[in-house]
């Protein structure tokens, strides 16, 4: 499986630009990590249920009531760019 590992393609999926140097380095370093974790394919898990959380807590509901929350000013206080009480983003639709 690790033979098909392609850092360049995976970086596109992750929306993460990498330099050519990083791509080469990660390909080798993470290839080793993947080889290491492939030891897990030897474990018999045919009758084992997966664990997503150590102590599953299901259906955590609360009353549908308004509660104190950020003001628009607080929510925008860390925005790299904002205007008219809104976040400014790059053009999404061509």
């Amino acid at each position: 499986m690790s033979a098909q590992f392609d850092v360049r393609y995976t970086a596109q999926l992750a929306r993460l630009n990498l330099s050519e140097e990083e791509i080469a380095k990660f390909q080798s370093q993470l290839g080793q990590v993947l080889e290491y974790v492939e030891k897990l394919s030897a474990v018999d898990v045919s009758v084992v249920e997966p664990t997503a959380h150590a102590f599953p807590v299901h259906n955590v509901f609360r009353a549908d009531e308004s509660r104190p929350s950020f003001t628009a000013e607080q929510a925008l206080s860390n925005a790299p760019r904002s205007a008219n009480g809104l976040f400014v983003v790059p053009k999404v639709i061509e």
Binding site: M1, L40, S41, V43, V45, V48, E49, P50, T51
Partner: peptide, 15 residues
Amino acid sequence: DAYYLRAQKVRTLIR
């Protein structure tokens, strides 16, 4: 399935 789901199953064995 090969990585994440399998890891979650081995996680059960560890627990």
